[in-house]
Amino acid sequence: MIIRCPQPGDGPDLFDATVDALSDLRRFPASLPWALETPSIDTSESFCVSGSANFQARKDFPFLFIDKTSGIVVGCGGLHRPRWAVPVFELGFWGRSSLVGRGLFSEAVDALAKYAFSNFDAKRIEAICDDLNARSIRVCERIGMQLEGVLRQERRGADGSLRNTRIYSKLA
C-alpha cells in the first residue's frame, strides 16, 4: 500500500473510490455528512488540490490509500483538526466497499497513527465514529485504540433519528 497526500490530478481516481464506497458511507450521515453530496470528478479534484495545500500549510493532513500493484485509490484517511499544543489529531478514514475485509484499511489506519506519533510527536490520536458503524469500530480496535466512551444521542441523522457516537483514542 502507498499512503500519500493527495495531489492535483488525483481527482478522477479519488472519484472512482468515492463512488464505490458511497452506499456504505451514506449509512452514517451524522458522521459523514459530505457523503450525502453528489460526488463529481470536479469536487474530488478540488479536494485533492485543497488537501495538498492544507497539508503543506500544516492545517489538515489528508492521505490517499493506493494499492501498490494496481495503482487504484482504495480509500482515503487523514489526521484532522490538529491541536498543536498537545499535540492531538482526529483520525478519519473510509475505503472502497468492494475491498472491505482484506485488512487494507486496518493497515492504512495503523500507518496513519504511527505517522502522527513519529512525524508530529502526537501524544494522542482519536477517532470518532457512529455507534452503529461496526467496520470502523473493528478497525479502531484492531489497531489498539481504546474506547473512551459513548456520547449518547449526540448527533442527528439525516432521517431525524438521534445517533450515538463512539470516541476511541490511542496514546503515544
Rank of each mutant, 00 (worst) to 15 (best):
residue 2 I to C: 00
residue 3 I to N: 08
residue 3 I to M: 01
residue 4 R to Y: 01
residue 5 C to Q: 14
residue 5 C to H: 06
residue 11 G to K: 00
residue 16 D to G: 10
residue 16 D to C: 11
residue 18 T to I: 10
residue 23 S to K: 12
residue 24 D to G: 04
residue 25 L to R: 14
residue 26 R to L: 07
residue 28 F to K: 08
residue 29 P to A: 01
residue 35 A to S: 15
residue 37 E to V: 05
residue 38 T to K: 15
residue 44 S to C: 12
residue 44 S to F: 03
residue 46 S to G: 04
residue 47 F to Q: 02
residue 47 F to R: 01
residue 48 C to L: 04
residue 50 S to I: 05
residue 52 S to Q: 04
residue 54 N to L: 11
residue 54 N to Q: 14
residue 55 F to V: 09
residue 56 Q to N: 13
residue 59 K to N: 12
residue 59 K to Y: 07
residue 60 D to P: 02
residue 64 L to P: 00
residue 65 F to W: 03
residue 66 I to Q: 05
residue 67 D to N: 15
residue 67 D to W: 07
residue 70 S to N: 14
residue 80 H to S: 10
residue 88 V to G: 10
residue 88 V to C: 10
residue 91 L to W: 09
residue 92 G to R: 14
residue 96 R to K: 15
residue 99 L to A: 01
residue 100 V to N: 12
residue 105 F to A: 06
residue 106 S to M: 08
residue 106 S to H: 04
residue 112 L to F: 05
residue 116 A to T: 08
residue 118 S to P: 00
residue 119 N to P: 07
residue 119 N to F: 03
residue 121 D to P: 02
residue 123 K to Y: 08
residue 124 R to F: 00
residue 126 E to W: 12
residue 129 C to V: 14
residue 131 D to Q: 03
residue 132 L to N: 08
residue 133 N to A: 12
residue 134 A to Y: 14
residue 134 A to S: 14
residue 134 A to L: 13
residue 134 A to I: 11
residue 135 R to H: 11
residue 135 R to V: 09
residue 136 S to G: 13
residue 138 R to Q: 09
residue 139 V to R: 06
residue 144 G to C: 06
residue 146 Q to R: 15
residue 146 Q to C: 09
residue 147 L to I: 04
residue 155 R to N: 06
residue 157 G to D: 12
residue 158 A to Y: 02
residue 164 N to S: 03
residue 168 Y to A: 10
residue 169 S to Y: 01
residue 169 S to C: 08
residue 169 S to P: 06
residue 171 L to K: 13
residue 172 A to G: 14
residue 172 A to V: 06
residue 172 A to C: 01
